[in-house]
């Protein structure tokens, strides 16, 4: 079982102080949070990709390359890499380069992105979203596995005798997670290739998440990659902790109420009942996370969002301390029997 953190590099006002970090601060802080995540024993750090404000993460492989130099063990991943608007040739090359720099501790999560105006900035059209995800990944999959590729498709210029360089480290393509919140086509795609499937379940009720995961598991089996229970599933989670449950609620509520996603909608309490959002004592966060296994079966990767919504850097580091001291040891013990394990560069090399 892998534990990690994921974020999208949102810049938000801290409602307690009225202050928001500069882009420079936010980017530097993301690196420090990643270093801290390795220190407390996390396995994965994933950085999102966005090209519009209020996000600073337009270039995840640049950030991950820098994190690679500051860390030695943690797996570098994304949440997500846009398979629709990025040229698959560039994705193939960027992540193979990152593999070489990080000695293989690299994987990535592919997603479509969901903001219409972003597509034309990269010469694409959101109405082709699914078609782009399907065609671009079919090409990316080949670029990492075949030294010389001849290719023709609808959405980019043909390739003749093309070799993506550098080649993947040790000839092992980075492991791919397909991330989708509500497109069944993407769960089918993940199952077709026998890749991983990540459902970012934060903001969503478990019934919805279960439908997506069950679809993926069924397709994994249908396309001959093994029994549904062997499929590779990842989940998100969002937590905020203080020793006393009530202190956590009081401190977190203004962030919740001012959040562009949560604010103005169902209350914090109702949101905690109906989605994975977990605000309270470490024990409450542990209990909530353990329920994921009951709801969705054994899974392979658990990523927590801990640094969004304007939470100050100091508080984020405190959250990771609590996570490392009180939450991770228990979750590791409780989840130790979950199988299969998530693929890594080392496991796929042999």
């Amino acid at each position: 079982m892998q534990f990690g953190i994921f974020g999208v590099g949102d810049i938000a006002v801290d409602p307690w102080t009225g202050r928001s970090p500069s882009e420079h601060e936010r980017i530097r802080n993301m690196v420090e949070v990643a270093v801290k995540a390795e220190e407390i024993g996390m396995d994965v750090v994933a950085v999102g990709e966005h090209h519009n404000r209020p996000f600073v993460t337009s270039s995840p492989t640049t950030i991950l390359g820098y994190i690679a130099a500051r860390t030695s063990r943690i797996i570098l991943s994304t949440s997500v890499t846009l398979i629709t608007t990025n040229d698959p040739v560039k994705i193939a090359e960027d992540f193979a380069t990152l593999q070489h720099l990080a000695d293989g501790r690299v994987d990535l999560m592919l997603g479509r992105g969901n903001t219409g105006p972003v597509y034309p900035w990269f010469g694409k059209d959101i109405r082709d979203g699914i078609a782009l995800a399907v065609e671009n990944y079919a090409l990316l999959h080949r670029l990492w596995r075949e030294d010389v590729v001849d290719w023709e498709g609808k959405h980019r210029t043909p390739l003749q005798s093309f070799t993506a360089t550098p080649r993947p480290l040790d000839g092992v393509p980075p492991f791919v997670w397909h991330g989708s919140i509500r497109s069944p086509e993407i769960a089918v795609q993940a199952g077709y290739y026998g890749d991983g499937f990540f459902h970012n379940n934060i903001f969503w009720p478990k019934e919805h998440t279960k439908r997506m995961i069950d679809l993926y598991r069924g397709q994994f089996e249908r396309y001959g990659h093994g029994p549904a229970g062997q499929a590779i599933v990842g989940l998100g989670g969002q937590t905020f902790m203080r020793r006393e449950s009530q202190d956590a609620i009081e401190e977190f509520r203004p962030y919740f109420d001012n959040s562009p996603v949560y604010g103005g909608g169902p209350s914090l309490e109702q949101t905690m009942r109906e989605t994975p959002l977990s605000v309270g004592s470490p024990q409450e966060v542990i209990d909530r996370t353990l329920r994921f296994r009951e709801d969705f079966g054994d899974y392979q990767r658990q990523l927590f969002n801990v640094d969004g919504m304007g939470l100050p850097h100091k508080v984020v580091l405190e959250q990771l301390d609590i996570m490392g001291e009180e939450v991770l040891p228990v979750l590791r013990r409780e989840f130790a029997s979950m199988r299969p394990l998530a693929p890594t560069h080392e496991s796929r090399k042999s």
Binding site: I130, A131, V134, E135, A138, K154, P184, E185, A187, V188, Q189, G191, Y192, R211, M212, D214, L215, G218, Q219, Y223
Partner: peptide, 15 residues
């Protein structure tokens, strides 16, 4: 229901 009767990925690949 796209969950109980999902698309065929071969169809998606074929455009």
């Amino acid at each position: 229901d796209p969950f109980t009767d999902p698309v065929s990925f071969e169809d998606l690949l074929g455009g």
